[in-house]
Nucleic acid binder design. Structure first.
Lengths: 117, 117
DNA sequence: GCTCCAAATCGACGCTCATCAATCTACTTT
DNA sequence: AAAGTAGATTGATGAGCGTCGATTTGGAGC
């Protein structure tokens, strides 16, 4: 009986030993991954993605009253989606009298975009 | 009483009339938005994002047994996340004997990456 | 004052998600 | 054939999500 365990490419190894030596590790650490996943999650709904698309193409602020009729969903639902985007740091809002205006926050998508390559 | 409605920038308008003329429209249509949101949603979890990160950096196939010990979650959970990524078209898998190897599908993230700019 | 309006919030509904322990499947080794 | 192993599947649980109708909030106009 030899002492060297001879971790062969098949299954010969000490019991409880992992089947492979882990040789891969994520370059993106948990904290960064959590941050990017949060942004990705916020974009993970067709309505929110289209909302961001409209706001991005428009560079300036856009009134909510223009956003609501673009979708076949009720006004509170649009409000909810805008809140999700705001809490993810993707958009900002500003009130002027009765109206509320939304806009994309510059560079908010940069980290994710850079990672996607 | 004048007949012209005079849609002023404030609230003077005919009842039932929208507050603003909708002048913005999404460039990204619903179908494309749904497709991209599906990918974004799959990336909207820190574990899945790190899984993709590992697989992307590795260009080749990676054994599941190397992926499991990278996270503090049970093996069935890793399996579940890999399944989600596979169903989103982001990764592919291949079995060789006892082991399963996963790899990123080239160009799977291109559409979303291009949109993010 | 009161009324009207845009937008946000609330409360509830069904559905989906992340997670785990237990089990199952398919393969390898003895 | 029997035992062992990697990975997938199942079933359950608790949390979260998308949606809506109803209500509330805070201005604007009469």
């Amino acid at each position: 009986m030899s002492v060297d365990l001879e971790l062969s490419p098949k299954t010969k190894r000490a019991p409880g030993e992992p089947c492979c030596e882990p040789v891969v590790y994520p370059d993106v650490q948990r904290e960064q991954a959590t941050r990017m996943a949060q942004v990705a999650k916020a974009l993970g709904d067709p309505v929110r993605l289209q909302l961001v698309d409209v706001l991005r193409k428009h560079a300036g602020k856009v009134c909510v009253c223009e956003l609501v009729p673009l979708f076949d969903i009720a006004q509170p639902t649009v409000s909810h989606h805008l809140k999700v985007l705001r809490e993810a740091g993707i958009v900002g809002s500003e009130r002027q009298g009765l109206w509320a205006y939304y806009f994309v926050i510059p560079d908010a998508l940069n980290e994710l975009a850079a990672w996607l390559g």
